[in-house]
Amino acid sequence: MGCISTKHTKQTPGYEDPKVLASETAFTVSEVEALYELYKKLSFLIIKDGLIHKEEFQLALFRNSEKQNLFADRVFDLFDVKHNGVIEFGEFVRSLSIFHPDAPEEDKIAFAFRLYDLRQTGYIEREELKEMVMALLNESDLRLSDEVVEQIVDKTFGQADSKGDGRIDLDEWKEFVKKNPSLLRNMTLPYLKDITMAFPSFVMKSEVSDEDM
């Protein structure tokens, strides 16, 4: 334990240069290196191959690798940009960057839209919205009658679907979010502001690496 340079340890498959990732994201090089420490922990939780599988993602989120959750599935699928069933390090950093407090709001809005566009048609459709509300109700103790759910979905659509064509496109979504900024609440993770503090063991390693550079 202690002062071991990350430079000399074996890197996980899909490892990318922190300097390149920092240049493309809201993170500094040190923060990307701290994220690598986190990534390694997550990617060895179950399947020890240095890649984050869905079961490992679920285990990290819920302390249960079996727990099914529609929204966690969607987040995983969006992080898995290559759609090869795993989150690689570069995908992890680029995706998490959207959740950084300093990331452009435009990116957060677009990511949230893609999350809710379950069938990836480019629109949030009424049926999708109802499906997501029902999924949330199933996961929680909230109990609402089908009639009330229909009313809520209708009302939300009435507000968001300004063109009245029965589906919400990205422009309508942007307008809707402007009027309801709380909808982006989940798109910012304050933890990312001090990721190097969250992984102090990394800081010791990083100092050795930086001297080497």
Partner: peptide, 24 residues
Amino acid sequence: TNLNAFDIISLSAGFDLSGLFEEK
């Protein structure tokens, strides 16, 4: 009701990524 469908959805634990940062 004044509930917005997206506000309801946003309550899902699946959106709470803070678990990624907790001690493993």
